[in-house]
Structure formats: C-alpha cells, structure tokens
C-alpha cells in the first residue's frame, strides 16, 4: 500500500488553486463538463441545420419549379445566408476541435487496457461516435464540392438544383456513398440527439421520458428523408 501513498501533493489545495488562479471562463471551458456543453450546443446547431436541410430537400418531390425556387429564395437573402453559413462552419469546427480534445482525455484515461470488456449498457451508436463523426467530417466537404459548388459534379448546371440532384444521383456509386453517409448520420444522431440533453442538464421528470423516443423518431424521419432521394432517382421515380 505504502508506495502508492507516497509523495502525493494535497489534491484539495491543488484543486482550490486551480479554480482560483484562472478566469472563471477558462475554468468553465477547460472542464470536461464545459466542453460537453460546447459539444451539445454545436451539435444542436447541427441538428437544427439537418432539420432545415431535409425539409428543403424533400421539396424535390414537388418538382423542379418548387425546389429551384426555394434555392433562389435562399440565395436572394444574401448576407443572411452568409451569416448562417458562418455560424454553421464555426459550429462544425468547434464541434470537431472539442471532440478531439475530449477524445484525447478519454483515450488517455486507461493506459492499461482490459483483456476482456463486455458492453452491458452502451449502444453500437454510442461506441462508434468518434468513427461516425470523423467519417461525416470527411463526407461534408465532398458533399459541398459535389452539389453546392459543383466542382466534383461532371454535369453541374448552375442554379438548377433539381437537375444537379437527378444527374448526380443517377451515378449509382455516388448514391451509394450518400446513402452510406446518411447511415453514419443516423448512428451519430441516434446517440447525439439524446446525449445533448444530458450534457446540458435537461432531464426534468416531466419530459425526461420523451427525450429518447423523440431523438429516435427525429433520427429515423430525417435519415429516411435524405435517403429517399437517391433511391427515388435510381428507381426512376424522379427524373
């Protein structure tokens, strides 16, 4: 027992000094709890964006005039669109940087691994958050270059969203890539859209029981909405 006891500085004094000597905001954002708040708030920006994005995408079923009109309206807002893009980019960057910092701490917290460890409470989604997150981070720029700027789209027609979607998804492997990415999004959201409420401390008994079913429903609806479009193009339902 003795050797583990030796040479320990007073942790209580160190903790007090740690919280006293630094600005409270530095303490807050330096803590694991503060960083989870950043994860949850930036994740919530993502959730809001995803909801808007899927709603607009589904206008594709209303025909070219509707979805192209919606696109034209968004672009006509000018500065507001750029503000929204800046917020989104900022949120994604903060989300990734914080995820990296938190993951480093967690991965360093068990220097000697278990020979055997069995999951009894976690889900596949929760255990793959880092993988789904990193792969989504790779997918996002590809998607922007493909359907937003057109740099990766061989038949890109500026200002014709409908055409670009249809001609883009006619290439089967592009559709497969998008569907795979949306499955990753499903995993990330299944855990994240529930976990963010915990991170922010929302769990009043009045609504705590609703968070899991709402997050699950949200994930299923959003992801099926996204996936339906490449499927519809491949099946020839929209052309």
């Amino acid at each position: 027992m003795k050797e583990a006891v030796a040479d320990r500085e007073s942790p209580v004094a160190a903790t007090a000094a740690n919280t006293r000597s630094r600005h409270w905001l530095v303490v807050f954002f330096g803590s694991t709890v503060g960083k989870k708040v950043v994860m949850a708030l930036t994740g919530a920006v993502g959730v809001g964006f995803i909801l808007l994005h899927v709603s607009l995408n589904l206008l594709v079923y209303a025909g070219p005039a509707t979805i192209n009109g919606a696109d034209k309206f968004l672009k006509s807002t000018g500065g507001w669109l750029w503000l929204a893009r800046a917020i989104l980019l900022g949120a994604v960057v903060l989300h990734i940087v914080t995820a990296y910092q938190l993951s480093r701490m967690s991965l360093g917290s068990r220097p000697v691994k278990y020979q055997q460890w069995e999951p009894v409470g976690s889900t596949f989604a929760s255990r793959t958050m880092r993988w789904s997150g990193v792969l989504l981070a790779l997918f996002i720029p590809l998607h922007v270059l493909h359907l937003a700027t057109g740099a990766l789209h061989p038949h890109f027609v500026p200002e014709n969203v409908y055409r670009n979607v249809v001609s883009g998804f006619r290439v089967w492997y592009i559709s497969v890539l998008y569907i795979f990415a949306m499955c990753l999004l499903a995993l990330h959201l299944y855990h994240g859209a529930w976990s963010m409420f915990q991170s922010l401390g929302f769990n009043h008994p009045r609504y705590a029981g609703w968070i899991r079913p709402v997050a699950t429903t949200f994930t299923i609806v959003v992801v099926l909405g996204f996936i339906s479009i490449p499927v519809a193009v491949l099946l020839g339902a929209i052309s």
Binding site: P11, T15, N18, T19, K35, G121, H191
Partner: peptide, 18 residues
Amino acid sequence: VTAMDQAGFGNCTMHREC
C-alpha cells in the same frame, strides 16, 4: 468537477455502462 478532471478521469459520453 475540477478535482474530477484533475485526477485524470476521462469524460462522459453517455454510454450508460456505469
């Protein structure tokens, strides 16, 4: 919370194993 972080524990991602 400061003491918890200082001790070298990881951070909660809500796996619910605990």
